[in-house]
Design a binder for these strands. Structure first.
Length: 270
DNA sequence: CATGTGCCCTGGAAGC
DNA sequence: TGCTTCCAGGGCACAT
């Protein structure tokens, strides 16, 4: 379930096996995910040493001493398997380090992607060009949101999922943040009072922060035999809880907008 | 430009 | 048990 917190946790989990290590083997096991793997991926990554790991929105970044950055997106079903007992049919990219560790990018639905760009050309990487501010960074403020949403008639839920407004929010945490703030998902984005936007920003930070913390705990025990990164504990208040009681006692409802489920409480969210 | 819709792909869960 | 249907964390192309 890769949203921003899981990508962040994944990137942190890659530090130990990758940071400072030389890649002695880089193998793609098919030609593409959402789009083709870079044709020179193997050539440019083999023999390179990983000098840094990072994240931008829901993209993970792996930097090498050659000035390259491998950018991965986990799509809907992607995850890195660490030291898998065997390589499976959905392990589409496999890295082996000088320490003998194996990392497999597993993505059954193949909605993910892998790109390779020069570090100094990162700002020109097309998918990054239009991204809005990081939700956990200094760029996301009530004032910024007020400006970005001014005059917009679209539902606040759709606006928060738009990566050009805020980069990295996904369906789960948008539902959770709107619930925490008490804003109804269909509310026209441009008509939300500034004060509520301030609180929305706080909720976004709180919800993401808690999820990253939970992911961190998951990470600490992820050294299970299969070495897989685990899933986050499902501690959501509305997401995936249709029919259950909200904290207020009213039922959690589900509606579908643009083909995606929205979970909310009609009593808490106005 | 702003907004809404459909599709990419597979597997797991629920329904019958 | 076995078959069918529904559903899913994202992003993008395309129509209006």
């Amino acid at each position: 379930m890769p949203e921003l917190p899981e990508v962040e946790t994944t990137v942190r989990g890659l530090e130990t096996p990758l940071l400072g290590h030389r890649l002695k083997r880089v193998e793609t096991r098919r030609a593409d995910l959402r789009r083709p793997f870079p044709v020179d991926l193997r050539q440019r990554m083999t023999g390179a040493t990983v000098t840094g790991l990072g994240r931008r929105a829901k993209y993970g970044l792996i930097e090498t001493d050659r000035g390259d950055v491998m950018i991965f997106h986990l799509g809907m079903s992607g995850r890195w398997r660490i030291d898998p007992s065997e390589i499976g049919m959905h392990d589409h990219l496999v890295l082996e380090t000088d320490a003998g560790r194996t990392l497999a990018l597993c993505d059954p639905r193949r909605f993910g992607s892998v790109d390779l760009v020069r570090k100094d050309e990162l700002p020109d990487f097309a998918p990054f060009k239009a991204l809005g501010p990081e939700p956990l960074g200094p760029g996301l403020t009530g004032a910024y949101l007020a400006g970005a949403l001014e005059g917009r008639a679209a539902p606040i839920k759709a606006m928060l999922l738009d990566q050009r407004i805020v980069a990295g929010l996904g369906n789960i945490y948008v539902c959770e943040a709107l619930h925490m703030t008490g804003i109804a998902p269909p509310t026209p984005a441009g008509r939300i009072a500034r004060k509520r936007l301030d609180r929305l920003v706080e909720s976004i930070r709180e919800v993401l922060g808690a999820a990253i913390e939970a992911g961190g705990s998951t990470l600490r025990d992820y050294a299970r035999p299969d070495g897989e990164l685990g899933y986050f504990a499902k501690q959501w208040l509305v997401y995936g809880r249709e029919g259950e009681a909200c904290r207020c006692g009213a039922p959690v409802l589900r509606r579908v907008d643009g083909g995606r489920s929205t979970f909310y409480c009609a009593k808490c969210q106005k």
